[in-house]
Design a protein around this nucleic acid. Sequence first.
DNA 1: CAGAAATTTCAGTAATTTCTGAAATTCATA
DNA 2: TATGAATTTCAGAAATTACTGAAATTTCTG
Lengths: 185, 185
Amino acid sequence: MKLAPLQQEFVLHFGEMGSRWGINRTVGQIYALLFLSAEPLNADQITEGLGISRSNTSMGLKELQSWNLVRLRHVPGDRREYFTTPEDMWEITRILIAERKKREIDPTLTKLRELEMSGRAGDDYAEARIAELREMIELMTGFYNDMEKLETERLVKLMTLGSKIAGLIDKTSGALTLGRRKETK
Amino acid sequence: MKLAPLQQEFVLHFGEMGSRWGINRTVGQIYALLFLSAEPLNADQITEGLGISRSNTSMGLKELQSWNLVRLRHVPGDRREYFTTPEDMWEITRILIAERKKREIDPTLTKLRELEMSGRAGDDYAEARIAELREMIELMTGFYNDMEKLETERLVKLMTLGSKIAGLIDKTSGALTLGRRKETK
DNA sequence: CAGAAATTTCAGTAATTTCTGAAATTCATA
DNA sequence: TATGAATTTCAGAAATTACTGAAATTTCTG
């Protein structure tokens, strides 16, 4: 399978970005190929399309499954396994954020709490710093947990409003500003 | 300089997490050491504290400077350079988000726009998929640009409110729901 | 349930990244 | 502006990560 120029360039880009995103080149490329493919692909098609070894494809697909980024499909009358990425862009986005949080943030939050509990010897400044960092992560992950629960429709609206949202918040009290906008001249 | 147990464990953790965060072990460790240090440290102190080579320290500090994560300080009567991390946890957070967006998201947004402009041959599905991805990134970065402009105080309040914010949005219109809460039974 | 197809595992190799020590350069001040 | 301290650069070594091909295992199907 020879890739179309569009796929080719997209696949190469994902391969290059892979290392910045915490995956390796082939994992990035496999994902890119599946993402653009209208039909599910099997491991041999991926192997041929990317010019890599069959075993590398197998490992890459396992990695993508551990990220929950690909879905397994079965084609009637074909015993091979086929793979796709979710159709819904929001589903993909939610998964990506959840998985990166799990890998990049959660372990540190756990470690910080352990350090605070265990009473390891350290100066006051260091202890205060660790507490500050933990609080920041808690604020961020707390907000994330709230947002993540919202239906996509509401999330889109909220994000589209952007900073208009902030105008609603009374700066001094932290409470929501009630009553209509524009009426308080 | 022998590190206190608290610093030791924190430094090791940052070293291990480094690769997931897109930096290498020593860069993570240098940052961790500076983050917990009440006083600015010079390169020799870092070198000794972490047990690494002087040149590695130099390269690590350069990397941290390219991330804008450390500040240069000069101590009167000492010609060596001293380094600190910003005191303000929010400053650190804002920088981290901005830098990761710059490295991990912006290049892809640019590439997607190029692909759409250049009219590379590709099937309809792939083109639609690329457009969808670009739109998602634009929605996210647009929201980020709005939030990033807010004063910290407002941002904290917004994040603390969390999903209460979403209740304000009228689901069907996308407009803000005006009038008092709780009054529309 | 035997055989073949599909998939996974894994040891060895290749590629890449990180780190070091020595040399070169920069910088401050006497 | 010459000197020595501080810092950076960089080629090679070490460590880590990625990839391959062959063998092992699993999974279907006749």
